Computed example of a mutant assay.
Amino acid sequence: MDKDVNKDSLNLDPKSNNDYISKREKQLDAEFQKKIVERKKKFLEELKTENEVFDNRTLLNIYSLLTGKHIDEFSGIINSGKEAVVFKAKKGNEYFAVKIYRVSNCDFKTMWKYIQGDPRFHLRKSSTRQIIKAWVEKEYRNLMRALEHINTPEPILRRENVLLMEFIGESGTPAPRLKDVKVNYNEFYELIREDLKTLYQDAQLVHGDLSEYNILVKDDEPVYIDFSQGVITQHPLSKSLLIRDVKNICNFFKRKGVKCDYRELYKYVTGEELSIIDEEMVNIY
């Protein structure tokens, strides 16, 4: 053995080494748990200041985003509606959007109507939790499908009634909705017209709830959000929902002085004439 090595400095007893490692692991675990508790407390305070009330299971789903290191903190509300609230969140210098459905406020009958006709889902109407989980899964899949063809937020992950996605905006400031910003309306109508056609014919998807409220404006281009009601073109409600979409779009742009007709827009998107029967079906749904 090298003479420079002090035998007393070596611990050759395996039991002693294992005891040291075990003690150190417990110490590190205690430190980690303390950080988790502090982080959870901060997280709950953040939600409390936003005047939002969620059930325990939802809080656990949201909290899993923090412990999973997907985000570091919440930093305000982007939008709040009856059934869902969209938070702004951060990880480092990057911003994200977190959409959280309020389970107690959701219209499960309407959700079920949109889900049951979708061949992508085979769900038995057994619990509200299963329905809302399928609803968020549907929005996630719709965004993934639409993203291949038009501007939408990129979905990142979902946890039951929670959806994490790309933040649309600059330096933490959300992009404005079409209803809140002035654009060249004639040019913007043409962009939306083309996107609707692409969404229908290439992505085989109908937004289902399209209006000036669900279109953001970023870099002078439309970005489409809120795809939870979106359906594929094979869905029995797809025609009715598309008619409603084109009517909403044309009503908005008409108010801005753009010459447009929803029947012409429907034909441009689908390649088919709009029948009286199809229009009557809109009132049923």
Score class of each variant (00 low, 15 high):
residue 71 I to Y: 00
residue 71 I to P: 10
residue 72 D to M: 09
residue 72 D to K: 13
residue 73 E to T: 14
residue 73 E to N: 11
residue 74 F to H: 06
residue 75 S to G: 13
residue 76 G to H: 15
residue 76 G to K: 14
residue 77 I to L: 06
residue 78 I to Y: 09
residue 78 I to A: 02
residue 78 I to V: 14
residue 79 N to G: 14
residue 79 N to H: 12
residue 81 G to W: 02
residue 81 G to P: 11
residue 82 K to A: 14
residue 82 K to M: 09
residue 82 K to C: 07
residue 83 E to N: 05
residue 83 E to W: 05
residue 85 V to K: 05
residue 85 V to H: 06
residue 86 V to R: 02
residue 87 F to I: 04
residue 87 F to T: 01
residue 87 F to A: 00
residue 88 K to F: 08
residue 88 K to H: 11
residue 88 K to Q: 12
residue 89 A to Q: 06
residue 90 K to T: 04
residue 91 K to A: 03
residue 91 K to W: 01
residue 94 E to Y: 06
residue 95 Y to N: 15
residue 95 Y to I: 15
residue 96 F to E: 06
residue 97 A to M: 12
residue 97 A to P: 14
residue 98 V to D: 05
residue 98 V to C: 10
residue 99 K to H: 02
residue 99 K to Y: 07
residue 99 K to R: 14
residue 99 K to W: 09
residue 100 I to W: 00
residue 100 I to C: 00
residue 104 S to Y: 04
residue 104 S to Q: 13
residue 106 C to Q: 10
residue 106 C to P: 00
residue 106 C to H: 06
residue 106 C to N: 03
residue 107 D to R: 09
residue 108 F to E: 10
residue 109 K to Y: 13
residue 110 T to R: 15
residue 110 T to A: 13
residue 111 M to R: 01
residue 112 W to M: 11
residue 112 W to S: 10
residue 112 W to D: 08
residue 113 K to W: 09
residue 114 Y to M: 04
residue 114 Y to T: 06
residue 117 G to N: 11
residue 118 D to L: 13
residue 119 P to S: 10
residue 119 P to T: 09
residue 119 P to F: 08
residue 119 P to Y: 11
residue 119 P to G: 07
residue 120 R to Q: 10
residue 120 R to N: 10
residue 120 R to E: 11
residue 120 R to G: 03
residue 121 F to K: 13
residue 122 H to Y: 12
residue 125 K to A: 14
residue 126 S to E: 13
residue 126 S to D: 13
residue 127 S to M: 07
residue 127 S to W: 14
residue 127 S to C: 12
residue 128 T to E: 13
residue 128 T to A: 03
residue 129 R to W: 15
residue 130 Q to G: 11
residue 130 Q to S: 11
residue 131 I to P: 02
residue 131 I to R: 01
residue 132 I to L: 13
residue 132 I to E: 06
residue 132 I to H: 07
residue 134 A to C: 14
residue 135 W to T: 05
residue 135 W to V: 05
residue 135 W to E: 04
residue 138 K to D: 08
residue 139 E to P: 05
residue 139 E to I: 04
residue 140 Y to V: 04
residue 140 Y to C: 01
residue 142 N to H: 00
residue 143 L to T: 10
residue 145 R to G: 05
residue 147 L to V: 09
residue 147 L to Q: 12
residue 147 L to A: 15
residue 149 H to I: 12
residue 150 I to E: 05
residue 150 I to A: 02
residue 151 N to T: 04
residue 152 T to M: 00
residue 153 P to S: 08
residue 155 P to M: 07
residue 155 P to R: 06
residue 155 P to E: 12
residue 155 P to F: 06
residue 156 I to H: 03
residue 157 L to V: 04
residue 158 R to Y: 07
residue 159 R to V: 07
residue 159 R to I: 09
residue 159 R to A: 01
residue 159 R to W: 00
residue 160 E to C: 11
residue 160 E to N: 15
residue 161 N to M: 05
residue 163 L to G: 06
residue 164 L to G: 07
residue 165 M to C: 03
residue 166 E to C: 13
residue 167 F to G: 02
residue 168 I to F: 02
residue 168 I to D: 02
residue 169 G to P: 04
residue 169 G to C: 09
residue 169 G to K: 06
residue 169 G to N: 08
residue 170 E to M: 10
residue 171 S to P: 08
residue 171 S to R: 15
residue 172 G to K: 07
residue 172 G to H: 03
residue 173 T to C: 01
residue 173 T to L: 01
residue 173 T to Y: 00
residue 174 P to M: 06
residue 174 P to K: 10
residue 175 A to I: 12
residue 175 A to F: 13
residue 176 P to G: 11
residue 176 P to I: 10
residue 178 L to F: 05
residue 178 L to K: 05
residue 179 K to L: 11
